[in-house]
Structure formats: structure tokens, C-alpha cells
């Protein structure tokens, strides 16, 4: 589903954020990418969603080499990727329903299709009663669940979450993780970059640990601080 081949990233200021990483993620996997700040996980995530291009190496997502992709093709790549951010990134002047519907509108989905799918995903994330609320009327957890609903409404094969629980209290963080697990069980490949060691320990998923731009650990069912 995701293949990262000998990927390096050197920023224009000379700092080498990712050093010759090779990683393969199968369809339907749930992968935690962990590491301290500055370990290169954000850079890696940004390269996955083609916000950044690797300096060398190639990234293949869903059979498509994204490093050779033209700029005009990027939107179509992103429609195959559900993306969730630490800071939610909701449109503040649109309601929960509109925020989720927006991701469908972008793909030029029909109004009928939108009217059918949006309520479904909203009830999946438990926001069926909040569809008319605006983001500033929601708690952090509710905002992140809205963002999750938006990420999965187009039924993408891959979901990428960059520190999805970073702005949430521990209890709410668990709600979001359970939801991610739920989404994974429905067949979506899930990649989560996180700092939340307790969650990683508890969930016993595949863990890829980065340090100074290198993969220092990759275990099938691991915790945050396991020995390599």
C-alpha cells in the first residue's frame, strides 16, 4: 500500500531530516510512527502527503510513484489519503456537516451522494447530534472527530494522522484512538505519528521508531519504549 524506498530529505538550510529510509506498509496495517521531536517523523508524514518532496529516493502510494507526479495530479493523490492534523484544521465558518461535506464537494460528488454519506460518517464518529454546530462550539475531541469524519468520508484506502491526540486530554485522546482502530478494522490502512507513549504501549500495533532521521526500531506488536 505504501512503499518508501531509500528516501532522504535535506532541507535547504542543510539539515538532514530523513536519512535513507526504507519502509513498507501493507494494506490494512495500523502503524505508529514514533520518535522525539526532530526525529524526522513530521518530515516523513509531509512527504507521504506530498507537502514535501524527498531529496532522493521514491515513495509509492497505492501503486503510484508520487515522487514523479506532476503538480496537477497531487489533488487526486490526496483524495486517496485521509489526513488528520494535530490542530484539526476545520473551516471555522462552516458547520460540522459542511466541513465534512466539503471534502466530498471537492471531488465533485453529487448532492445526493453527499446527503447520504455525510450523516453516515457523522454517526460513525458519534457527532450525529452536532452536525449544525460550528467548530468553535465544539470541544477539542469533537473537533478532532469532525476532522476524522472529513478524512474518511471519501472512503480513502489510507488514513494519515499527524499527532492526532497532541491537543487533547488523555481521555479524549483514547476516544480518537479507538475511532482510528475502528476505521482500521473496516479495512483502511492507518498511519499515525504520535508522542503518546501510553496509547502506543496499550494498543500493541506495529511501531516504527525514528531517531535523527533513521529508523531505529520496527516491531510488529510493540510499545513505545521497547528495546530494539
Amino acid at each position: 500500500m505504501i512503499t518508501i524506498n531509500n528516501v532522504s530529505k535535506v532541507y535547504p538550510n542543510g539539515s538532514q531530516a530523513v536519512k535513507n529510509i526504507t519502509l513498507h506498509i501493507e494494506k490494512g496495517e495500523f502503524v505508529f510512527i514514533i520518535g522525539s521531536s526532530g526525529s524526522g517523523k513530521s518530515t516523513l508524514i509531509k512527504m507521504l502527503m506530498k507537502e514535501l518532496d524527498p531529496t532522493s529516493g521514491e515513495i509509492i502510494i497505492n501503486g503510484i510513484n508520487t515522487t514523479k507526479m506532476s503538480r496537477s495530479q497531487v489533488p487526486y493523490l490526496r483524495r486517496n489519503l485521509g489526513i488528520v492534523f494535530q490542530d484539526f484544521r476545520l473551516l471555522p465558518k462552516k458547520t460540522v456537516y459542511e466541513n465534512v461535506a466539503f471534502a466530498m464537494r471537492v471531488t465533485e460528488a453529487s448532492s445526493r451522494h453527499i446527503a447520504r454519506n455525510v450523516p453516515t460518517v457523522l454517526s460513525l464518529v458519534g457527532l450525529q447530534n452536532k452536525s449544525r454546530a460550528y467548530p468553535n462550539e465544539l470541544s477539542g475531541g469533537e473537533q478532532q472527530r469532525t476532522a476524522l469524519a472529513r478524512a474518511i468520508v471519501n472512503n480513502p484506502p489510507i488514513l494519515i494522522a499527524d499527532e492526532p491526540t497532541g491537543n487533547l486530554d488523555p481521555e479524549t485522546a483514547w476516544d480518537i484512538m479507538y475511532l482510528l482502530d475502528e476505521i482500521n478494522k473496516r479495512g483502511t490502512t492507518v498511519v499515525v505519528a504520535t508522542h503518546a507513549s501510553d496509547i502506543v504501549d496499550e494498543m500493541q500495533k506495529r511501531v516504527v521508531m525514528l531517531n535523527h532521521g533513521n529508523i531505529v526500531r520496527d516491531v510488529e506488536r510493540g510499545g513505545y519504549f521497547d528495546e530494539a
Partner: peptide, 12 residues
Amino acid sequence: NIMKYVGATDWF
């Protein structure tokens, strides 16, 4: 920026 992340084309 958000539009770009959910896969909106430039013309959209």
C-alpha cells in the same frame, strides 16, 4: 490550505 489537503484542484 485546508482545501488543498482534502484534494481540491487549483481550479476548484
